[in-house]
């Protein structure tokens, strides 16, 4: 019988001390659903980079995860400034990160590229001043 699970985690922008907390909890939860190995790893890494981006660039956001027998689909939505030039943002090395982000070990312009690399399907939808939606699909 096919089962479906869906859950969400809120992420607060600018909350650098908590960066990664949602990702750790989501990983634990997915593990509990029997997801392991490379699939678990790629999912956790993609979510981590996304969480750091919300904290770095947006005021607040939400990570929504849907697990089916076939795949894991992750929607990451934020109400930040949006990404004006998505192609440029996707480029390795492009970054507008400030010192605080760099001190944490991020801000080298690798995040979105890493997310794409972990995904079987990846899409960014964004509108200036409205926010950003990342749609990540990982096959099980």
């Amino acid at each position: 019988m096919s089962q479906k699970y869906e859950f969400s985690f809120p992420v607060k922008g600018d909350n650098f001390d908590d960066a990664g907390k949602a990702s750790i909890q989501i990983k634990k939860r997915l593990k509990g659903l029997g997801i392991t190995g490379d699939v678990l790893r790629r999912t956790a890494i993609a979510i981590y980079e996304s969480e750091v981006n919300i904290i770095s660039y947006a005021r607040q956001g939400n990570i929504n995860i849907r697990v089916t027998d076939d795949n894991i689909s992750i929607n990451i939505r934020d109400s930040g400034p949006g990404i004006a030039d998505i192609k440029q943002a996707m480029q390795q090395g492009y970054s507008t990160a400030n010192d605080r982000i760099r001190k944490m070990g991020f801000g080298a312009g690798m995040g979105l590229f890493n997310i794409k690399n972990c995904s079987d399907d990846f899409e960014i939808l964004s509108k200036a001043n409205k926010g950003t939606l990342l749609k990540i699909l990982i096959n099980r």
Binding site: D17, G20, I45, Y48, K103, G105
Partner: peptide
């Protein structure tokens, strides 16, 4: 910083 521990947990 604590990030380092969370990252280590993510990549095992």
């Amino acid at each position: 910083n604590p990030q380092v521990v969370r990252i280590a947990s993510i990549v095992d």
